[in-house]
């Protein structure tokens, strides 16, 4: 599994990086930590590039490197990377790769599982390119930014998207898994099983009877899902909740929930202009939300 963690400002990115690395560690996946720098106007892009080269020559950190240095220090403080004298961040090489991608090479870096990269440009375009080029399975991003970004990420990025909202290291989390009979829901169940197994988290399976579905049919789905978890020896509770899907799930989710949802099967054009249920839940919930693809 490959994980992409997008970080921005230091104070906002700490929970994102923390949760992202926990996930990466439990899945033993290779991780890319990406900082996407501000989009530069075409008028000034060459001037900015010349200035940044000049800063490199003078051994002054170019913009963005300080954020990656902070991320690196954070990984060391949490022991995701072992600190050695030969492994200081001061001693780095910035390798200019294609398509506005720059990779930080730390001399003597012992782990090839963690990459620190820097990109410049429009954030969705850059993250989409990163996911497509390096085939990441999950993109993890903070929840404090512009909500439009989350919508576009879910719509256009070819990986699961984890929006980390109000995450606290000290809280004991449990998974909230809304299910129905869609393909997306099946994927969400698989992911929830993996998460619950790796983290030893309890799972609450919920379903909302909507449209022509009878209560019996919904109960059947809940039972079937519970069995899948039981086979993996994961503790679950099930609940049938009333009301509209979005509002009921948003109201049901607590601060200590991690909501895992499947992507909507809706037509992409309809989703772009009118949104989708998973997206509305992700936007309204006050806790981390993972939309699986």
């Amino acid at each position: 599994m490959k994980i992409l963690i997008a970080i921005g400002g230091r104070e906002f990115s700490k929970p994102t990086l923390d949760l992202g690395m926990k996930i990466a560690n439990s899945f033993k996946s290779s991780t890319t930590i990406a900082y996407v720098g501000k989009k530069i106007s075409q008028f000034s892009e060459k001037d900015v590039s010349v200035v940044h080269q000049n800063l490199d020559d003078r051994e002054l950190y170019r913009p963005g490197i300080r954020t990656l240095e902070w991320a690196y220090d954070f990984l060391i403080s949490k022991k995701y990377i072992e600190e050695k004298d030969s492994n200081k961040f001061d001693d780095y090489l910035l390798v200019d790769e294609e398509n506005s991608r720059m990779k930080v090479l730390l001399k003597g870096q012992q782990s090839d599982k963690i990459d620190l990269i820097m990109r410049t440009g429009e954030i969705i375009e850059q993250l989409k390119d990163e996911v497509e080029t390096n085939k990441h399975d999950i993109t993890i991003i903070g929840g404090s930014g512009n909500k439009g970004i989350h919508q576009k990420l879910v719509q256009f990025i070819d990986s699961s998207v984890f929006v980390v909202k109000n995450y606290s290291v000290n809280k004991k989390y449990k998974i909230l898994l809304p299910v129905n009979d869609s393909k997306g829901s099946d994927m969400a169940i698989e992911t929830a099983i993996n998460f619950a197994k790796s983290y030893k988290l309890n799972v609450e399976i919920v379903s909302v009877p909507e449209g022509k579905k009878s209560i019996e049919e919904v109960e059947k789905i809940l039972k079937k899902t519970k069995e899948k978890f039981s086979k993996n020896r994961i503790q679950t509770t099930t609940k049938l909740i009333d009301g509209s899907a979005v509002n009921s799930i948003v109201n049901y989710a607590k601060d200590n929930s991690i909501v895992i949802l499947g992507v909507s099967p809706k037509n992409p054009i309809m989703k772009y202009f009118f949104g989708s249920k998973p997206l509305s839940i992700a936007q309204k919930c006050n806790c981390p939300v993972l939309i699986t693809k």
């Binding site: 720098g37 501000k38 530069i40 106007s41 008028f43 000034s44 001037d47 900015v48 200035v51 940044h52 913009p63 963005g64 300080r66 954020t67």
Partner: peptide, 13 residues
């Protein structure tokens, strides 16, 4: 966006 100077200063973050 008005001048290279402004954009370069902004790009420092």
């Amino acid at each position: 966006i008005s001048s290279p100077t402004a954009m370069i200063i902004y790009s420092t973050g």
